[in-house]
């Protein structure tokens, strides 16, 4: 069996003031697996993501990436092989679309011609024709377009792992559905290891192989997406009921 892509081993995190956020989180993510972290706001989902790329270090336990403790990773090296998609795209307002997407390759010292080619390829991949979008500014884009650029930027240096923090949360339902579909197709082609934070059950079901529910800093349940409808774990059934109520309303 190959090593886990990301492995949380009894991970705890508390703020400097002592407020606990995560408590004994244990979760193993295999290469190429897509795991959705589901839970209320403030449950500790985003903190879990930030522990993976060492924007935070655990106060207890350890997070392993590619079999190595994040504490022993050089943070810059680690982050350059982990793509990160933020809720509102997190685009740099002073850089054009092309410069946003080409940022990591440039930091990695690619030749400009290679960067340009990669930017064109990625913009095509996320459905933004390069000839129309490469030289635009982030403020000239719609929310959905900004999010596509954010995804392209995260994929730019072809990182094996992708972190997505409520990537489609700020979009209108139509655009969200469209982007979710496209992301699912993209994932089929690229086969990345993805850790997705969301509070949208539909999104989790559509995109992920496994759904994990976090409440109050603890992992409550994990279930394969295909088994979601049949699982008898009370946490899952509660979620399922809520979903049904939403649908019938």
């Amino acid at each position: 069996m190959t090593a886990a892509a990301v492995d949380f081993r009894g991970v705890s995190f508390r703020h400097a003031d002592g407020t606990p956020v995560l408590d004994g989180l244990t979760l193993t993510i295999a290469p190429g697996e897509v795991v959705a972290l589901l839970g209320r706001s403030g449950a500790g989902k985003s903190t879990a993501l930030r522990l993976v790329n060492r924007m935070l270090l655990p106060t207890g336990g350890s997070v392993m990436v590619d079999g190595r403790d994040t504490r022993s990773w050089d943070p810059i090296m680690l982050r350059r092989r982990i793509g990160y998609v933020l809720q509102d795209g997190g685009l740099f307002p002073h850089l054009s679309v092309a410069d946003n997407v080409g940022l990591v390759p440039r930091l990695e010292g690619w030749l400009q011609a290679d960067v340009d080619a990669r930017v064109r390829e990625l913009l095509g991949l996320v459905g933004l024709p390069p000839e129309r979008f490469a030289s635009r500014w982030p403020e000239e884009l719609s929310g959905g377009q900004r999010q596509r650029v954010g995804v392209a930027r995260a994929l730019a240096a072809d990182p094996p792992v992708l972190l997505m923090d409520e990537p489609f949360g700020a979009l209108d339902p139509m655009t969200r559905a469209e982007l979710q579909q496209e992301t699912a197709q993209l994932q089929q082609r690229l086969g990345k290891t993805i850790l997705l934070v969301t509070h949208d059950v539909e999104e989790a079901l559509l995109l992920s192989d496994r759904i994990c529910i976090i409440e109050d800093g603890k992992l409550q349940a994990c279930v394969a997406a295909t088994a979601f409808d049949k699982a008898d774990d009370p946490v899952i059934t509660a979620l399922r009921d809520a979903r049904l109520r939403d649908r019938t309303r």
């Binding site: 982050r79 982990i82 933020l86 809720q87 685009l91 740099f92 940022l103």
Partner: peptide
């Protein structure tokens, strides 16, 4: 904006 700074850090700057 915090998210812009975070994006920079997360991209490995």
């Amino acid at each position: 904006d915090r998210s812009v700074r975070d994006a920079g850090i997360a991209l490995g700057m």
